[in-house]
Design a protein around this nucleic acid. Sequence first.
DNA 1: CGGACTCTTGATCCGCCTCAAGTAATGTGG
DNA 2: CCACATTACTTGAGGCGGATCAAGAGTCCG
Lengths: 243, 243
Amino acid sequence: MSQKRVPVAVDAVHCATCMMGNVCLPAGMPNHEVEQLDQLVKERIKLKKGDILYRSGEKLDALYGLRLGSVKSQLEEATGQVQITGFFLPGEIIGLDGMLDGEHGTNAVAMEDSEVCVVRLKDIDDISRYVPSLQQQVRRVMSKEIARTYQVMLALGSMRSEARLAAFLVNLSQRLSALGYSSTDFIMRMSREEIGNYLGLTLETVSRLFSRFARDGLISVSQREIRILDMEALEELAGHQAS
Amino acid sequence: MSQKRVPVAVDAVHCATCMMGNVCLPAGMPNHEVEQLDQLVKERIKLKKGDILYRSGEKLDALYGLRLGSVKSQLEEATGQVQITGFFLPGEIIGLDGMLDGEHGTNAVAMEDSEVCVVRLKDIDDISRYVPSLQQQVRRVMSKEIARTYQVMLALGSMRSEARLAAFLVNLSQRLSALGYSSTDFIMRMSREEIGNYLGLTLETVSRLFSRFARDGLISVSQREIRILDMEALEELAGHQAS
DNA sequence: CGGACTCTTGATCCGCCTCAAGTAATGTGG
DNA sequence: CCACATTACTTGAGGCGGATCAAGAGTCCG
């Protein structure tokens, strides 16, 4: 629990000057409106690897924009079942579930040293009085999350294991590419077990699939370092259903 | 395509007098605010069984509150894969995905003769100027949908088939009960195949499970008519994970 | 250098899918 | 209302994909 809350200095980076401005909450907003968001983020939180941003059941009064690092969110049932519901990269918004009863429904854990912008719901409502499109942005982000989970449902419900992992890699590649990183060479921040949990597979199956993909010349793998050698083949695989 | 659009007469039922008022979009709003929503729904759509409310790719400019009947939404990939992403009951909101680029990402199909209230996004934004809590309600509904899909991810990712179906029945029972229907006796509007698709199983497996649950005295089944005989046992089953 | 993870790989097993056949419900046109 | 077609569901037999169990290798970190 080494969460460190830091107030945002008056002259510090705001949304208008943040490098994530084009992918984060303000994505697509006209410049003159983004400039009005300078009071939106009054605080940031620095997280060390393994730190918990929030726990299921805690009161929710803010969303978090990931600025740096990576975070996973996971659902934990009383029965002991755990399901990772998402891996978040910089520019993505964390904490969208649980706004119905004001309580988080998942845990959010930093997968490496990370930093998030705290966006209080109260401030969203206040600011959207004079920046009406802000509400639309929030809806947009939530809608995007819903669309993402539908894709995961499709993967879990009707793809064979190799298609799931291929789709996972292609998706990760695209998101990293949108952030300006290489789309073919990257480091996965998650373990085999976490990937397996997310995709409804065991860690052994994930490991075997990585080996097979490598043997077939689709990728090369060294621990969590991935190089995609044949993107087309991966996309082809990802498009194949169970039967 | 026998969609029938009907304008809402000035003296017709509005949110404040609608029977669904306590479960639909206005759920939890104070009465004096619900009364201000009389301009929110200017149109309703009557659907016959099999009618399509919207198709993937169509422009989205409204949400739909289901007033009567039942509707399924399904993701269709170019590859031919189909995944049912939700079964909607009266009082539930349809069309929450696809608000990011203004296009629906799924198809919505009536599973029986149904009727929906059309809630235009423009009207939401207009009305929320003088009813600020309306935006929170929209967030709430979207957040609830996200939380629901997380539960489905858990089911698809780490439950065995009998746990999935048990959880499905318990969930359906609870939602029907909240609508004032019996929690133990109801008719499922969906086919074995649709249930199977939603739960990531084949129709044969679903059929076998129904038979087994009946043989074990948990339920009695006659086609789509279900009677739950041992709710506790079902809940117990639903809480069991794969291993 | 030791100890704890994380990952890989093999052998075996089982849950669910596939394929197949038959029965029951529902719909349709005469 | 009946004959017929169509669709929905049930049940069985067999096969396979991924889980489980188990052992060993590589990597990280004190």
